[in-house]
Amino acid sequence: MTVPDSSRRLVTVFGGSGFLGRYVVRALAQRGYRILVAVRRPDLAGHLQPYGTVGQIKAIQANLRYRWSVDRAVEGADAVVNLVGILAPQGRQSFEAVQAFGPRAIAEAARGAGITRLVHVSAIGADAQSAIGYLRSKGLGERGVLETVPEAVVMRPSTLFGPGDGFFRRFAAMSRLSPVLPLFGSGQTRFQPVFAGDVGEAVARGVDGLARPGTIYELGGPEIMTFREILERVLAETGRRRALLPLPFWLARTMGRVLELLPGAPLTADQVRMLERDNVVSEAAAAEGRTLAGLGIAPTAAEIILPTYLSAYREYGQFTQIRPGAQP
C-alpha cells in the first residue's frame, strides 16, 4: 500500500476522544497527518497526545448543536472524519441531534469549506426507515452525509472489540458480580465483532483516498459468533463459570423500558431490539468488495485481542494461575 505524503495535511476528527477515536487518531498520526480533534470537552482528550509528536494533535471545542463551532472546526482542513455517536439518548444528546442532524451539519460545513474527502462512521443495520431509533438516526445521518457530499465514504462497523470496549467488557464485569449472565432470546443472534484497530485503519485509508468515493463499507471481523458464543468466550477468557439465563426478548424489552428511565441506563428497549437483529456484513457488501478485505486489511481475530484486556476480569487478573501463597 502506498500512503501519500501527509505531513502537511490537516484532518479534523469529530468525536475523536472516544473509544474508536483513539484508534483513528493513532492511525492518522502514524501517517504524519496533523489532527484537530473536535470534541465537546477538549480537557478530556489529553490521552491522545502520546499518539503523535509535539503539536501534531490538538483538541478543540465543537458541539454539533452549534453550527458555528462545526464550521470553525473544519477551517483549513483537507479532510474530515465523523465518529460522533451515542448508544442511548441522554438529556439534549438525542439520537436525532447527534446521529441524524449532526452528520448533515458536518457535511454541510465540509462542503462549505470546499472539502470533499469526508469519512463518516455509521453502523451495520443503519436504515432511515427502521423502527429502532438508533438505527433510524444512523440511516438518516448517512443520507444527510451522502446527499451533501456525494464523494463521502461511509464505514459501517459491526460490534467493536478492543481494550476499552463497551460490549465484551460489560459482560466480563457482570460475571464478576452475578452468578448468571442474561442470554437474550435464544442466544442465536449473530454478530461479526471487529477489532477497533482495524476500523481505525480503514478510516485512515479512507482519508488517504484509498476507499471508493460515495461508497458504504461494511466492516466485520473474520469470525461470526452467536450471542451465546460471545458469552461463552467471555467466560472462557475470564476463567469463570456462570449460568446463562434465557431471557425472552419481550421481557428484556420491558426491562429496558424501565431501566432507560434511570441516569446512565445499563439497558434500553432500543438496545434489546438491536440484539434481536443479526449484526453481520451483508452478502452484497462482501461480493462488491465493500469490506475490510476490499480495503486491503486482513481482519484481526478476536482470540488474539480479547485475552489482552479481559484478563483484568479474572479472579487474580493476569496472574490467575498464581494462587495466594504459591511460588511463581
Rank of each mutant, 00 (worst) to 15 (best):
V180C: 11
E288T: 15
G220R: 10
R241W: 14
D278R: 01
R323I: 10
L210P: 09
F227S: 06
L20R: 05
M174A: 05
G144Q: 06
R40H: 14
G85Q: 08
T12E: 05
D5P: 11
E288P: 15
R143N: 06
I115A: 06
A302F: 13
L295Y: 00
P299Q: 02
N279V: 00
F184K: 03
S122V: 02
F249G: 02
R92A: 08
S7Y: 13
L181A: 00
G185M: 08
W250R: 10
I106N: 03
P222A: 05
A113S: 12
P299W: 00
V80I: 13
E218S: 01
Y309N: 03
A301W: 08
V281K: 07
R111F: 02
Q188G: 10
G197T: 12
G289R: 03
G221Q: 03
E229M: 04
E237T: 14
P266D: 03
I322W: 12
V281W: 13
F191Y: 14
V207T: 08
E147Y: 01
R31P: 06
L36R: 15
P307N: 12
T2H: 03
R156W: 06
A236T: 02
M255V: 04
P222V: 02
T300Y: 14
V84N: 08
V119K: 15
Q327L: 13
R323S: 09
V119R: 13
Y309A: 00
R190A: 15
Q49E: 15
A301P: 14
G114M: 07
L146W: 00
K58A: 11
P307L: 10
V3T: 13
A79L: 14
Q99P: 13
R205L: 12
V70I: 08
G85A: 12
T226E: 00
A287L: 04
Q30W: 13
L83T: 03
A204K: 07
V272N: 10
G206P: 01
A196H: 01
L259V: 03
V149A: 02
V54A: 09
F101I: 09
A286R: 09
G52M: 02
V13M: 10
R111V: 14
G16L: 13
A173G: 14
L135I: 06
R323H: 11
S7P: 05
V84W: 02
V11T: 09
D270S: 02
V153F: 11
P263I: 12
R41E: 07
L231K: 04
P4H: 03
A312N: 10
D165W: 03
L310S: 05
V280K: 11
L261A: 13
K58P: 04
P299K: 00
S186R: 15
G144V: 08
E142P: 03
P328C: 10
A243D: 13
R41D: 07
V25S: 09
R170P: 01
A252V: 15
V81C: 05
R212H: 11
F319E: 14
E96V: 11
L219C: 09
I35G: 09
G221D: 09
S311V: 08
R22F: 00
R26V: 04
R240D: 02
Q99H: 10
E223H: 12
T308I: 08
R290C: 10
V194H: 05
T116Q: 06
A196E: 02
E283I: 09
T268M: 08
I216Y: 05
L183V: 04
P222C: 04
G166F: 14
E142F: 01
